[in-house]
Design a binder for these strands. Sequence first.
DNA 1: TTGAAAGCGCTAACAT
DNA 2: ATGTTAGCGCTTTCAA
Lengths: 330, 330
Amino acid sequence: MATIKDVAKLAGVALSTASYAMSGDSKVSAKTREKVLEAARQLNYQKNGFAMDLKRSRTNTIALILRDLSGPYYSELIRSIQDVALSNAYDLIACSSMGGKESTAVRYMLEKRVDGAIVLAHNITDEILHAAAGPRFPIVAMDRLISGEGLINVVVDGEQGGYSATRHLIEKGHSSIAYISGPVDSYDNALRYQGFSRAMREAGLTEKAKWKLSGNFVREGGYKATKMMLMQGEMPSAVFYANDEMAVGGLKALEEAKVSVPGDISVIGFDDIQLAEYIQPSLTTIRQPMYESGSLAGHLLFQMLNGDLVNDFYKLKIELIERKSVKTYN
Amino acid sequence: MATIKDVAKLAGVALSTASYAMSGDSKVSAKTREKVLEAARQLNYQKNGFAMDLKRSRTNTIALILRDLSGPYYSELIRSIQDVALSNAYDLIACSSMGGKESTAVRYMLEKRVDGAIVLAHNITDEILHAAAGPRFPIVAMDRLISGEGLINVVVDGEQGGYSATRHLIEKGHSSIAYISGPVDSYDNALRYQGFSRAMREAGLTEKAKWKLSGNFVREGGYKATKMMLMQGEMPSAVFYANDEMAVGGLKALEEAKVSVPGDISVIGFDDIQLAEYIQPSLTTIRQPMYESGSLAGHLLFQMLNGDLVNDFYKLKIELIERKSVKTYN
DNA sequence: TTGAAAGCGCTAACAT
DNA sequence: ATGTTAGCGCTTTCAA
């Protein structure tokens, strides 16, 4: 691999002149520049990325940290962040946090291989985020509440989402409502459940323990939880799945049991995944403002990178998407 | 940010000793190591990633280059590559090639910010791939045929896929078959179309120009192409959409026109996206071995990184997934 | 306008 | 077992 030194030598100029010429500095004469560029071309010269980063102590790239790169779930969010990065002439890389402490994501943040990060990866501890963030390294956390130097939050109002979903059911006349929950240690699930509880309480409705089942946020879990609910005999008139994936599994269990949706039972989900629109019946659900929240997170990150002061907490509202899986109860 | 120098000073040892201690070299005494580690802890020391890379001239990370990070389409492929990277104790980052020459992806390859790459991004030219690849920088191309130093191919047999899909239709008794194509400059589309043509020719069937419409590989395109086909009056008994996204759009157009699938017309897709199973009717399609091909690409990349010699061309077979959108014609 | 040289933070060969 | 030192390839200050 040719280095800038080789280029300078071939062009017959000093190293620094070569550097100036290639970065388009105006103090180099056109003739010299051409000579340098020609030499670079001949040697097939490519600048070494980290030598530059090291010198500049800036990478011009930000990272998006996801628990699992392969999740189809975040595509809109990724798109929005990509847009913002592009318009700021920054590079964006996506890192997986699979592997926790040992993951690519953690290494990149701790070793400062990027200039800042947007984090959506629950398996990274607060401790690591605190260690990584700082005045020179901003982090936007989208999956938790955390504060500290260089650390801000952009979250979606999960409590309001849970509340809205439940209110919707109640307004349609449902009073016996099951809640299929995500993992107990999930912050998202906790918020959604809080919203559910508040709506129930305000309407004077009681939650039944046997109608609170866990589906672990996965399709299979929703399927099993629903089977279990079915086996218990008494059925609620509606069920609130804490995410769409579980609702998809639930719909399958219901179909197998010949329980008609929304005829016999209404269901509502959360997330508005792509499938929600296409499944039978199409799923009424809560849409999170993915594009907006990603875009906001990106913009804030760049403001911090510029040294601007920003608030450290932003909460976005969600929206109810009404489809065909909820029916007025009578 | 504390450097290793600070740590060494605080611990009262030489720079190199600190370095050795922290990388767990056995020649450092336990006591010294503890002293160093303690100093590092106190200073909240984090090693600087690119200083290390620069010195080692190795990054221990590979890149997966995708045209658009936000596409939900590649999740299985990403997962498989992630698995392979992890098991080789390498880091994996995903880079978008949006922006072409100026993209993050191209910068990372050219500036050698990673040790190698797997490319699935048509908007990157062969020229760039040639410039980036070399004996010290392996690239696995999964989206084209290209050869050169450090450059190998892992592709899925699109021609066979197109052939199988068409054969399936023919075996079910269909003889008037439309082909809704992707972009003309798409290599994937070309292969699928070749397979289609071969099957038609072998069966003595003729392609009709008016039944070859372009949908650009997107849902909306499939929708429009289908509308156009409908307007033309005469209908084929089956249509082969060159990808599932277009088929989804097509199904919608058909439904709006009250043309029953598969009652009045059969449809087959290509890719086996997640939706294919859930849409009404569920879509018969061609499944690409995403996990397998990603895994293979990953393994090959690491073999090359190790200096092993590998073949420069691998072609994987596809598989027909029979669902409900194709009916025997009578 | 050009060149010499310092130094970014780290590793590793070599010397002690 | 520990210390000294020479770079990795680049940018940028300072001097010419």
